[in-house]
Design a protein around this nucleic acid. Structure first.
Length: 202
DNA sequence: CAAACGATTTTCT
DNA sequence: GAAAATCGTTTGG
């Protein structure tokens, strides 16, 4: 029995708290008739819309690309970066509040062969789903899924009763603290301690 | 209408 | 550890 997260879950206001709560949940896709693929979320990053300089919606910016971020929580936002990789985000908050959570890494759970096939890798290695760009490939997600509801039957998140205690959650600032500005000090990147599927701890 | 850039990953040195 | 790959979106003229 699937315990799919409901719309109300995504509409909480505190995107930072939500980012931490998503750790240990399972991201599931059922796309392209290739069967179910899923993985445990082990790394997330919060994007707090209008106050976050790194966010696409900083300063209430509204463009054709970012307008989906202003929808009410519970839809997918998939963005093509560097012309190569698709980044999967979860839109949160109420309508008009452009907060989002970037899923940075998962641990493969179901549909291993399908994911290996999508990534064209012969064996399971941590890098199969370690990183926002590659996990999208493994899960079969691309930018055509922007705006897809996370309460539908294509992409969703499950609660399997796994709880990650706060002491096992590592919050870190964004990369490049040395030459980044004050905005980079925001500790809004979260990962599960000890997982081999996240970026190595520093 | 044209130019620059980016929430990354891979590959080569 | 550093640099290239690559194209849609955004910004400027």
């Amino acid at each position: 029995m699937r315990n799919k997260l409901k719309e109300a879950y995504y509409q909480q206001e505190d995107v930072v708290a939500l980012s931490k709560d998503l750790l240990g949940k399972y991201l599931v896709t059922n796309l392209g008739g290739q069967g179910i693929t899923s993985g445990k979320i082990v790394e997330t990053e919060a994007y707090n819309g209008i106050t976050d300089r790194a966010s696409h919606a900083y300063g209430q910016r509204l463009t054709a690309r970012t307008k989906v971020m202003y929808q009410q929580g519970g839809v997918a936002y998939v963005y093509l970066i560097y012309g190569i990789y698709h980044l999967f985000n979860i839109i949160t908050g109420d309508e008009g509040v452009p907060t989002a959570i970037l899923i940075r890494a998962i641990e493969p759970a179901e549909g291993m062969e399908v994911m290996l096939n999508r990534r064209q890798m012969p064996n399971l290695l941590p890098k199969l789903t370690a990183g926002p760009g590659v996990l999208s490939i493994a899960m079969g997600i691309d930018k055509s899924h922007t705006g897809t509801s996370l309460t539908g039957d294509e992409i969703w998140v499950e609660d399997r009763g796994l709880y990650i205690p706060g002491q096992d959650i590592i919050s870190s600032p964004r990369v490049g603290v040395g030459y980044a500005r004050e905005d980079a000090l925001l500790p809004w990147r979260f990962r599960v301690a000890g997982s081999r599927y996240t970026s190595p701890a520093k």
